[in-house]
Design a protein around this nucleic acid. Sequence first.
DNA 1: CGAATAATTGATTGGAGTCAAATGGAGTGG
DNA 2: CCACTCCATTTGACTCCAATCAATTATTCG
Lengths: 232, 232
Amino acid sequence: MVAEEGAKKSNCLRCAMRARSIFAGLSGEELCALGMDVIDLEFVGGTTIYREGDSASHAYTLREGAIKLVKSLADGRAQIVRLLHHGDLFGFEGLHREQHQHTAIALSTVKLCRLDLRELDLLSQRLPAVREAIFRRWQRALEEAENRIVDLGTRRAEARLATFLLQWAQAYPQRRSLPFPLTRQDLGEFLGLSTEHVSRIMADFKRRNWLRESRGELEILDPKALGAVGAS
Amino acid sequence: MVAEEGAKKSNCLRCAMRARSIFAGLSGEELCALGMDVIDLEFVGGTTIYREGDSASHAYTLREGAIKLVKSLADGRAQIVRLLHHGDLFGFEGLHREQHQHTAIALSTVKLCRLDLRELDLLSQRLPAVREAIFRRWQRALEEAENRIVDLGTRRAEARLATFLLQWAQAYPQRRSLPFPLTRQDLGEFLGLSTEHVSRIMADFKRRNWLRESRGELEILDPKALGAVGAS
DNA sequence: CGAATAATTGATTGGAGTCAAATGGAGTGG
DNA sequence: CCACTCCATTTGACTCCAATCAATTATTCG
């Protein structure tokens, strides 16, 4: 699978994502004055955007598609540390660390814009609002990580999977049928389960008519029931 | 158990912790000019310092002793989200959130200094170095949380416990016998295990002469062996 | 259509939870 | 100092959840 990479200079002024980005709140002038070269990129699903241990030179905003951040283990297994949707940032650990802490892999075709970390660092020193925006997202990430810890430490497989599916759905509001590019293995690596066990539970959910699935699309038919299982 | 609370105005200038605190790098003058009232506190083990959901008015630096940050579940169980040692900060989520996200409980007698969050917020806007220091610790916390996710998602009970003990020891370098105020239940709530299972494994480690334990003190006799088990 | 990959299903094992009881220790009060 | 209580720890027996091993059935893609 080849990385179909498209790259062009980005026009942040017209970016649909701007209001939700770390540059939200900046005036058009300020934005122009940034002098940052932000580059738009596009990758097909399966592309590795960077690897754990790579020296970190860029950070990214995910504009479209989904990405997994993975930590690989010595024995070949892997754990998905975070899943990203449109609007999420990643690669920002490079602000304080030399190397990326995860491997970032596109789950579907993704569009993202790439920021130079060194420029971003200087910029954020000049503009407290930008630093603040990054800080907030950091805090959000920490809270979500802590929720995952609670989840992994206390809940059973069924419940974890059920609440995960509902959370995934929240990332795509106002849609009956959701993009769902995750394999059973991905689900297992995210939830700390074997692929077989995930498969069993998913099959079970489908048999109960709580879900429908076809070619990378998922439909949640009975959120109530899933919620009830997730509450266990 | 009564909370023996001692409170006195703190002298940050002479604080032994200063070099490692968020005020590291500030000159003495700057520190004096802060105008923050920092208050020294002391609590006995078992004291709840704040509760999840409490409106967040203060942040803390732990100067001595150990603290657990806990999230409680609807069914009465609990998960320890983080364990803190001397030098660690906590309660800083209040910078961006109205309410504390965890319950903070002293595991042993603790000494801490308390900062007013509103003052700290203003201060950190004036002094980028302070904000930066907080930011860095945030990142560190996120990394540790992500490591816990990997741990909980991929490792078995024995391995989790073994590596945990070694990590605990790292918090008290140059000491043969470590303060160890954790109960079996605490360990279980941190590692996502039942107290019985923790007890079994600890007993097993002791039978193999890898550990010795008495009245809140722990001695690690065979770090190599523990490390080997932890690597599984 | 055929090959390769992903998903499902089955059978079995094994790890960890649960329930229950016994042991041990620390602190209290006589 | 001892008896007693309270609570944490240990241990045992059993159950159950989830991993593993193995085989079969979809799917996707060339």
